[in-house]
């Protein structure tokens, strides 16, 4: 029963995360479109020319 409850809880958590991610992605797409219409899209910052210092 514990396992069933745990899997139910984890299923709900996954569904919640899925919904949050979808909402966020949709909102970002909307925002990106607006920035583009305003001519405010900046080029992506250049990839770092240096590597991680170990």
């Amino acid at each position: 029963i514990d396992a069933m409850e745990a899997s139910e809880a984890s299923r709900e958590l996954i569904m919640l995360r899925k919904r949050l991610l979808e909402e966020w992605t949709a909102w970002r797409a909307q925002t990106d479109k607006k920035l583009e219409e305003l001519g405010l899209v900046e080029p992506e910052p250049a990839e770092s020319e240096y590597t991680t210092i170990e």
């Binding site: 996954i14 995360r17 899925k18 991610l21 979808e22 992605t25």
Partner: peptide, 8 residues
Amino acid sequence: TYDVERFA
């Protein structure tokens, strides 16, 4: 990454 991020 989270599983849901990988799937998405």
